[in-house]
Design a protein around this nucleic acid. Structure first.
Lengths: 203, 203
DNA sequence: AGAAAAAATTTACAAAAGATAAGTTCGTGA
DNA sequence: TCACGAACTTATCTTTTGTAAATTTTTTCT
């Protein structure tokens, strides 16, 4: 993919909206960062990072959808779905300095801008605005993680399903129900019952 | 509390262990940061931050234990317990720029070093090593948050109780069971049943 | 120390979720 | 377009949790 494509993405209204939070950054800061990234096309059902790897890749999703999951006793547990303008990377490798126990798998054909964390750090060390951008970005990730977590604690599975419907309507048709069930912390069978209950109560 | 006390805390082995992750910081960086903080004694059962407030306080716990909880329909939901060398602050106020819907309440007499987030930001802008320290610290917080979250998704309430026992034995005697139950996502009644089951299986 | 309040446990019952199995629908590729 | 496999739904049975109320234990306060 050539630089023309990057340009068109950077100029899209979606990217501009994402970007609004980081107005202290200069355009040349952004370009310095973007220039260290490589575009990667990740076809549906393929992995970006596999459990067991030690990878410091940081993927910024430009297009598509990826699930972040853990495999335990043959069961897969989806923690979160990452979509456009979100980040896919292994906090275990980068922060905890361990091999990752999680995997990232594309649910759709996905386009990523892929960075190397160590290279990003070098850049951050040279450019304090980028360093701050890095911190703000992580703070956003933390805030979003808490928002996801709180739904598991405050709401019943049925309420979580309704919340998901109203909060992520655009993901409803992109995420297979078995993965949604896993994300919600129930079995696919149970999700199916919940959907039936909800449908019946609205007849 | 005078500077002598800060000195003795900074020289404690617990603090040194916490500090080992941030070896790129110079001692004068640390002192510059510490000097902007104020010591606060927070008696048991008192709030550090109350739901509804807009507070950018950042409390670094030197001693004691605080619960981070949310009130919904008269029920309290504990998301996490913060102890020594962890941070208590409102991500909603700081990151999302909203009033907080969460509260922090001391479960023990607690000693905090309290910063103002905006003042911290100024300091970070002047000192890139501190800026990086800020980012690393948040990254650690995110990693810990995911580790807490994953237990809710991967494990049953009974397994969560056993995990808590082995992972936080030092918190077991510090956290009342009703708050532990809330943290585990079950009612106190259910936790009581779980404890009985576990005890019976070990007879 | 003793009274009052809060916390923890126990019991009974109702509701929901898990496991398993079987049947149906949907999609994809040959 | 047909056939195969994956995804989803339905049914049955078992286990666990939630709610409510009563009882015991622990903590707090005077």
């Amino acid at each position: 993919m050539d630089s023309l494509d990057i340009q068109s993405i950077l100029q899209s209204s979606n990217f501009q909206a994402f970007w609004a939070d980081y107005d202290f950054l200069k355009i040349e800061d952004l370009m310095a960062l973007v220039n260290t990234g490589k575009l990667q096309q990740l076809p549906k059902n393929q992995h970006f990072i596999q459990a067991g790897e030690f990878s410091k890749k940081v993927g910024f999703i430009l297009e598509g959808l990826i699930r972040f999951y853990h495999l335990k006793d043959g069961e897969e547990y989806n923690l979160v779905f990452k979509h456009e303008f979100q980040m896919a990377s292994s906090f275990e490798c980068i922060v905890l300095k361990q091999a990752t126990s999680y995997s990232y798998e594309a649910l759709e054909d996905t386009l990523l801008l892929v960075f190397d964390y160590d290279q990003m750090e070098e850049l951050f060390a040279q450019n304090q605005r980028l360093e701050r951008f890095g911190r703000y970005f992580i703070q956003q990730e933390l805030a979003m993680a808490v928002k996801v977590f709180e739904k598991h604690l405050f709401y019943s599975p049925e309420e979580r399903y309704l919340k998901f419907l109203e909060e992520y309507p655009h993901l409803m048709n992109r995420v297979p129900l078995k993965h949604l069930a896993s994300f919600m912390g129930v079995t696919p069978v149970s999700l199916s019952r919940i959907r039936k209950r909800v449908a019946d109560n609205r007849n």
